[in-house]
Structure formats: structure tokens, C-alpha cells
Design a protein around this nucleic acid. Sequence first.
DNA 1: ATTTGTGCAAATCGTTTGCATCTGA
DNA 2: TCAGATGCAAACGATTTGCACAAAT
Lengths: 142, 142
Amino acid sequence: MDIDGARNFDGDPDMVVRLRAAGLRPTRQRVELGKLLFACADRHLTAETLHEEAEQANVRVSLATVYNTLHQFTGAGLLREVSVDGARTYFDTNVSDHHHYFVEDENRLIDVEGKIRIGAIPAPPEGMEVASVDVVVRVRRA
Amino acid sequence: MDIDGARNFDGDPDMVVRLRAAGLRPTRQRVELGKLLFACADRHLTAETLHEEAEQANVRVSLATVYNTLHQFTGAGLLREVSVDGARTYFDTNVSDHHHYFVEDENRLIDVEGKIRIGAIPAPPEGMEVASVDVVVRVRRA
DNA sequence: ATTTGTGCAAATCGTTTGCATCTGA
DNA sequence: TCAGATGCAAACGATTTGCACAAAT
């Protein structure tokens, strides 16, 4: 059954397995988008970007589904959401704990390789606990 | 002339001076918005918020003008723009170098009092220079 | 008199939603 | 079968823009 399941449609068996493991039904569009997303590592893309990429790869998906998928993947821990820009939302295929350069004027994100050491965080307001610490290094053309 | 200038309309002379110093023409709406903005220190507000505040203070300004003013103030170094949320844009009346707590589920910003020590930043990509480093500590109700 | 700012309404942009239809288990 | 997913188009919220009018120098 497992094997048949993975063969029900022409999807990449690896991606099918990966989605199942994440608790997501391996639908055609999720598998296709997953393949595009994780083809190379450490990508930063917006819904718009991924949608265009899908078109060029002849994968028919509506923009709404791209949004849904991106959020589902994020919920499943396959992606990380990054907001630096106010306007658009970026999704990072690198889920590990790391920080970003944001290239102003280009609206482009780049992973910071290596750790940034962060000193003690002053105690958060009463009754609050730290969920995460995001560091964005804004860079510009020198 | 300077004094007359500051008396041309019923605006707060201090704010008039402050705007002039920043290279901005002290129009009625800029003076009024400036007074609201800087009435108390270290505020974080959105265009919408400030617009409502203006209404309640019986200051007639259009939302478009609020946006314009916020951006002009930011350009003049009177405000700082903070994006953490993806949706809205916050303006911080505290222009000094500091970081923020972002209260998830409440969409509220709080200044981090005191410094956060940040270790060396790995060299940015070729031909790029660091413009600023933003740290956002996401907190949630414990 | 000239330049600059303002208000309004319409336009834009990214994102979400409602709902009928389709698909995977 | 049938919960869950998809597509489309309309709805949305935040922000911007175009342009006629008003105000500051």
C-alpha cells in the first residue's frame, strides 16, 4: 500500500514520503511545489516567486494554492517564515537556527553563514517568555 | 522673521523650530502630528493608529497625509521605521540604537531597555556593507 | 508668484476567503 | 465514500498615487 500510494501519480516518491512524514497529504501540487522548493538548499522565496517558478516548470497551480502550501509547509516545519520587508513575506527553506542579511534596494535575503553571538537578553516584560530571536543585518552596496 | 514664522499659525513654536531644523516646512498638519507623536517618548505606532489619534484630538488630517508625514519624518531622522510583522509598518519615536520585543498574538512592539551585546557579524557578501543590525525578540505570554 | 503640501478617491500590491468542484485515501 | 484540497474570482487591508486645490515662503 505504501508503495502503491507513492506511485498513484507521477510524483517524486521521495517528496511523497517527506510530505507524509510531515503529516501532509501528498497531493500533486504539494509534491510539485515541494520539488521546486527543495531542489536546491537555502532558498528565500515569496509566494509570487514560487508561483512564477511553477509556471515556468509547467506546473499548473493557482496562486491561492501556493499561499496555502507555503503556510502548510511552514506549519509542518518544512519552511520558515521571515518578515523583514513590511511588504512581502519570505519563506526560507533553511529551517535551522540562523540569521539573515537583507539587501536593501534589492529586497533580497541571504543567509548569514556561521553564528552571531548574542549576549544576554534583558528580561522580557512581566509574564512573557522569549519565543525566538531574529537578527536581520541590513546591508547595502558599498 | 524667525519669530514671526513661528507665530504664523497657532502651532507649537517648539515643534515649528524642530521641523525647520529637520528641513521640513512646518505646515499645520505636520506640527499637529508632530505634537501627537512626540507628546510622550518611545512610542510605536502605525499610520492607522496615528490617524485615529489625530481624529480624537480633533486634528483634521487625511490618512494619506499621515503616511506622507510619517515617511518624511523618517527621512528626516525624527522617526525610525520598524518592520516585524509583514502586514503593517510601525514607526518608532525612539530613534536611538536599540532593539525590540515583539509580542506575538498582540502585534505590539516594546523597546528593549538596555543593550543586547551582539558578537562579530560574519563578513557580509562581497561589495556589501552593513547598514544596521535589527534584533527582534519575539515574546509570547508565558 | 512659486514652490510645496494636502485631501480625496481611485488604484495598486500582497494576501486571504468563499464556494463550487475535484481528488486522494 | 468523503474529508480534505484546489481554483477562481471577489474581498481585503495596508499603502500609494494622480490630480485639483490650498497653504507656506
